[in-house]
Design a protein around this nucleic acid. Structure first.
Lengths: 116, 116
DNA sequence: GCCTTACTACGATGAGTATCGTAGTAATCC
DNA sequence: GGATTACTACGATACTCATCGTAGTAAGGC
């Protein structure tokens, strides 16, 4: 018998530990930006395996860690899966409007470049 | 006798060549973000020498080039000086609200951390 | 022409990071 | 327990980038 949630815990920066430079750096990578956009569009938790990124699993792990450690996403284990969700409220409290304008900008650019 | 403006020209990305990832990367560096904030606060052209950055001249040149080549600033020679101004309108047309929210976020964080 | 000011080009260096492959753990299913 | 799924830790590698020092250019003042 096991309890409903896993005991494995992951380190996340507190509210006050989130740095603008780290968030911008996390968002500046095309693969990570793609993940963030997908999470925003889905508006729910998504497993790492949901994303089909053109890199190996280990590289994916790396990118998800960068997103988590910068404070952009929150990650929790759920069975064998690792679920990801945007820390939208935390970010908006710290940096009002920032995430939204990045998402809108990313959408506009994708449309403009024809890969969105 | 010389004409009023220099003939030296600098390469700038066109409107359509500006990439969100490059802009975010440019803004993700503390020194470059400091420059951008100063330009926004001043609301006018500032010479490179106006900024007293804690790095050598060559490193400064490097950071200003990153800002220019990403499309964040426009640089023009004026005598022996090189003047810098934000490409606020270009950026706002491409990515509405992005620069503003970054500037507000940077201001808020500087206040919060006591170095603004 | 000479000197000063302001920026630059180049090469070197060290730190960071994106990538991979291999081997491994943790939870779940049968 | 054994098999499967999903993610991870580690070491290696190559690439990018922030930094510097030196030597150099371009414009303007004397």
């Amino acid at each position: 018998m096991t309890v409903a949630t896993s005991t494995r815990e992951l380190a996340h920066p507190e509210h006050t530990e989130i740095r603008l430079e780290a968030v911008l750096h996390a968002l500046a990578d095309p693969l990570r930006l793609r993940v963030v956009r997908a999470l925003a569009d889905a508006d729910r938790e998504l497993a790492c395996s949901h994303f089909e990124l053109p890199v190996t699993k280990s590289t994916s792990t790396h990118h998800f860690r960068v997103l988590r450690e910068s404070g952009v996403i929150r990650q929790t284990y759920r069975g064998t899966a690792k679920m990801n969700r945007l820390r939208g409220e935390d970010l908006d409290a710290l940096f009002p409007g920032l995430l939204d304008s990045v998402l809108v900008a990313a959408g506009a650019q994708a449309k403009r470049l024809g890969d969105g």
